[in-house]
Design a protein around this nucleic acid. Structure first.
Length: 905
RNA sequence: GCGGAGUUAGCUCAGUUGGUAGAGUGCCAGCUCGACAAGCUGGUUGUCACAGGUUCGAGUCCUGUACUCCGCACCA
């Protein structure tokens, strides 16, 4: 470790209030200039790798990103400081549908239609758009403080990634795992493209159930069928009944006449039909319903497509043709009613699939698409989680993952879009050969014809995302980066994309690299507003993180988010909490300011970060804070190791604020401000310990609040490196020398002192004795050790409690006195404050009564426990013993309090 | 219907093997004590959702109930 000494300067140009704005941009530039975030492909250090879930390239940072990114940044910074070759690989996603829609909308405003522009020109426009806005999200990520290795920045349409995509496609095609087929898929009529099953969101809708009567061809009767979508009757190709349904058995095999079209359709039997529901007869529309589709396949029924890609009715249905399905429904219902076909309409709640991107109703639509077979791919992905080669945190997500994996369906990977990875398939117009190739083709591989046309579809965005953990590391080349960083350590993401992304990365990683893409999957909750509602534009409750950063700084936002992060639950965002941590930043700022104001330059001359004195030379307060510091290091290490971010934040918060500022800095003031030249040595020691402790605290907090800690660290008089973010993260191990200065004895001594001080302050506070009024106090220890400690710290107690005088002997006349009996670690003592002439004793009577009630309650509980034979018999011995001591102490306190109450009233 | 998470102070949440319920924030009172009013000091706040059970002892373990949230499936 290199030891650098920065000249200590007494010139304090630190403002009273922390203003993050100027500091943050300066500090981020400093990191970039020093290449602090760069990781090496080849290193002797152990690797630690995190791949950023790539945000939409034309998107902007929202609060969810802020949370997701901060978690990753904390981990990556922590590991970087802990001696790892720590890399965070950034990237952005082309986000096929979203980006295409945005650009299309934008062009439409200029009066330009995508279809008029043509594919090539349109894609050019999207690239222009990407180049214009692609940096916005990156600069926002930098404002948040993300310590990405920017040289590794990847875009999903980069050449390398595209190569990977094609290689994967061709490879899977050659293994017969990718196939093209005419199948019923989910379709977005607005986007006019197929979407995958998981891109459909089911919402409960209050609809109607229409009962239609279809007459038999031979006039022998009619069958009532029920439907929520009457317009689909145009595509009916059968009516199905249950094979055991006696009501219909006589008609099975006969034909019905479909109203409006007069088409003849058969009555068939199928087990799928529920006899109990409706009339027990189901109209079958194989081209527009998934269940009907399956039945159509089973019974070899014709599949009549009645919809155009944009959701309007196809030609051939007269006035209905060209209508959107909702209008068509209205008109068709009217027509059917006229003909007396509709027997009944009732209200019916059911859930309807909507396109998750646009919110329009998703239509089951018969079309030719590319599919990836998932069954074989899912097997190793299941095994890897079962064997805990990859672990979910929290573990409960394992079940969700498994359930989906076990019920996995083939994935529709083609999209009828222009923006994305075009499917690497060239169809020969002469010999009809399907050429599948990693390279662009101009000649048919079979007949050498030049008459080739590339498949017009692009791949689902998630197809390239699924390769992200290895495509970003250089695959298909066997790069050093891939060898070093794959499998990555942890994937951090929200639970909303476990199926879309996490599961698919697992499958592709195992298929192509033969190893899991990450060892741990950390799933965090989603951010909601202060009332627990989802954040959305329409509700107007979404919060712009950049605006928050402008207001309170990135650090405050980061630590506020992390302070709420536990057990993967969703978290409610509140600006109040943000303010709390803004204040915390200010506290840290001013604590450091104090360090400069209160210490003298000469005391730190030549001193280094790891210089320590001997225990005998530093004060008991120094020993106390160092002891606490050790505990903090241990606890934070444990919390980070176990992804307990809020615990780590709480530990650091209370150490810095309560232990360091409230007590240690106050304890150190009498020494530091002393003009007594005999105290020079103590001053020196305290100055050093103060700076050393502060330095460690800044380091410990750095992963959470990188900007302010880096800024303050740079000003420190003693430190062990120039740049905090690449310095060593403090642990019990690497701070052995310093921590050896801490001691348990010192801890006990100071805790006793704190107890006495607090109890006198309590008497002051409860009796409303103003600070300006000095008072007399008696502190009566019942044993020699406490006696020694307390008299040693006599002046300090007087200063802390604003006493005119302090006595350590028992006061003989305790009338008109406030009395507090105390016990600590086996010692007991009394604090007595004479109140005569100072305050009205009514308040003191109230205080005593309150304390008596409390002690009485304690005594009752303890008596009950200790009076219980079974407790004595069964409870651990040391518990029984400590309870006995507690009881004794409580009884003593009770007597003391009661006596002083008697004297007062 | 299946699965998951939850219910603890006014609010946001901790509570690791069972051993007298915690923090922050808010609220009340008093303070320009030589870093910080974005501060200091003191105080206030609970039928741990409900009902049973196991146990000497349950916020914690078991069973059931109610409510909230989130997935998935079904829905002619």
């Amino acid at each position: 470790m290199s030891e650098t000494n920065i000249d200590f300067t007494k010139e304090i140009n630190i403002e009273k209030q922390y203003s993050p704005k100027e500091i943050e941009s300066r500090i981020y530039d400093l990191w970039l200039k020093n290449e602090s975030f760069k990781a090496s492909d080849v290193s002797t250090k152990p690797p630690y790798a995190v791949i950023l879930p790539p945000p939409n390239v034309t998107g902007f940072l929202h609060l969810g990103h802020a949370l997701d990114h901060t978690i990753q940044d904390v981990l990556v910074r922590w590991k970087r400081m802990s001696g790892y070759n720590s890399v965070w690989v950034p990237g952005t996603d082309h986000a096929g549908i979203s980006t295409q829609s945005v650009v299309e909308k934008n062009l439409a405003q200029e009066g330009i239609l995508r279809t008029e522009l043509g594919r090539e020109k349109f894609v050019e426009k999207v690239w222009e758009w990407k180049n214009q806005y692609g940096d916005r999200i990156v600069s926002q990520m930098k404002r948040l403080g993300n310590s990405c290795d920017w040289d590794r920045m990847t875009f999903t349409l980069d050449e390398g990634v595209s190569k990977a995509v094609r290689k994967v496609f061709v490879n899977l095609y050659n293994k017969n795992m990718i196939y093209k087929g005419l199948k019923l898929v989910n379709w977005s009529p607005k986007l006019e493209t197929a979407i995958s099953d998981i891109e459909v969101e089911y919402k409960d809708v209050k609809g109607k159930l229409y009962h239609l009567a279809y007459p038999l061809e031979d006039g022998s009767g009619e069958i009532i069928v029920a439907t929520t979508r009457p317009e689909t009757m145009l595509g009916d190709t059968a009516v199905a009944v249950h094979p055991k349904d006696k009501r219909y058995s006589k008609w099975v095999g006969k034909n019905l006449v479909l109203p409006l079209t007069q088409r003849k359709i058969p009555i068939i039997v199928d087990d799928y039909v529920d006899q109990e529901f409706g009339s027990g007869a189901v109209k079958i529309t194989p081209a527009h319903d998934f269940n009907d589709y399956e039945m159509g396949l089973r019974h070899n029924l014709p599949m009549i497509n009645i919809l155009n890609p944009n959701g309007t009715l196809v030609e051939g249905y007269g006035a209905f043709s060209g209508l959107k399905s909702q209008e068509a429904r209205k008109k068709i219902v009217e027509a059917l009613e006229e003909q007396g076909v509709i027997k009944n309409i009732e209200n019916h709640a059911h859930s309807v699939g909507h396109c998750s991107k646009t919110g329009v109703i998703a239509e089951p639509f018969l079309s030719e698409q590319w599919f990836l077979k998932m069954n074989e791919l899912s097997k190793p992905a299941i095994r890897s989680v079962e064997s805990e080669t990859t672990k979910f945190i929290p573990e409960s997500w394992t079940k969700t993952y498994m359930h989906w994996m076990h019920n996995i369906q083939d994935w529709c990977i083609s999209r009828q879009l222009w923006w994305g990875h075009r499917i690497p398939v060239w169809n020969c117009q002469d010999c009809q050969h399907v050429n599948v190739s990693e390279d662009d083709l101009t000649i048919c591989q079979k007949c050498k014809s030049k008459n080739l046309v590339q498949d017009s579809d692009v791949l689902d965005t998630w197809f390239s995302s699924a390769l992200w953990p290895f495509s970003t590391l250089g695959w298909p080349n066997n790069t050093e980066a891939l060898k070093t960083f794959y499998p990555t350590n942890v994937l951090v993401t929200g639970h909303d994309i476990i199926f879309f992304w996490v599961a698919r990365m697992m499958m592709q990683g195992l298929e192509f690299i033969k190893d899991v893409p990450f060892r741990t999957i950390y799933i965090h909750g989603l951010i909601r507003d202060s009332q627990g509602r989802k954040m959305s534009k329409s509700l107007g409750n979404s919060v712009d993180p950049v605006e928050m950063i402008d207001q309170v700084g990135a650090d405050a936002l980061r630590i506020a988010l992390m302070s709420q992060l536990n057990t993967g639950k969703d978290l409610k965002f509140s600006e109040q909490r943000l303010e709390t941590y803004r204040n915390f930043m200010n506290k840290i700022w001013n604590a450091t300011r104090f360090a400069f104001i209160a210490t003298e330059e000469s005391h730190l001359d030549g001193k280094t970060f790891s210089d320590v004195s001997s225990k005998s030379e530093i004060s008991v307060f120094d020993q106390w804070i160092v002891f606490k510091l050790g505990q903090v290091m241990e606890s934070v290490d444990h919390d980070l190791e176990n992804y307990r971010f809020s615990d780590a934040v709480n530990t650091l918060y209370s150490f810095l604020w309560n232990d360091f500022c409230d007590w240690y800095l106050e304890f150190s003031k009498p020494t530091l401000y002393s003009k007594d030249s005999a105290l020079e040595k103590e001053k020196m020691a305290t100055s050093l310990v103060l700076f050393q402790t502060l330095g460690r605290a800044l380091k410990l907090m750095h992963p959470f609040i990188p900007f302010i800690t880096e800024e303050l660290y740079s000003k420190l008089a003693v430190k062990d490196s120039k740049i905090l973010c690449t310095s060593e993260y403090p642990t019990m191990k690497n701070n052995k020398n310093l921590l050896a200065m801490g001691s348990k004895d010192a801890w006990e001594e100071v805790e006793l002192l704190k107890l006495v001080i607090s109890s006198i302050r309590n008497i002051r506070g409860e009796n409303s004795i103003p600070l300006g009024q000095e008072i007399l106090a008696h502190v009566v220890p019942k044993d020699e050790k406490s006696q020694k400690i307390l008299s040693f710290h006599k002046t300090l107690i007087m200063k802390f409690c604003k006493l005119s005088e302090i006595n350590f002997d028992d006061r003989t006349n305790k009338s008109k006195c406030a009395v507090s009996p105390l016990s600590f670690s086996g010692s007991s003592l009394e604090v007595i404050v004479p109140l005569e002439g100072i305050v009205d004793i009514d308040e003191e009577i109230k205080r005593l009564q309150k304390n008596i009630e409390k002690v009485k309650k304690d005594i009752n509980i303890l008596n009950q426990k200790l009076g219980n034979e079974n407790f004595i018999k069964n409870a651990p011995e040391d518990l029984v013993e400590s309870d006995k001591i507690l009881l004794k102490e409580a009884e003593m306190k009770f007597r003391t309090l009661q006596e002083s109450l008697n004297r007062l009233s």
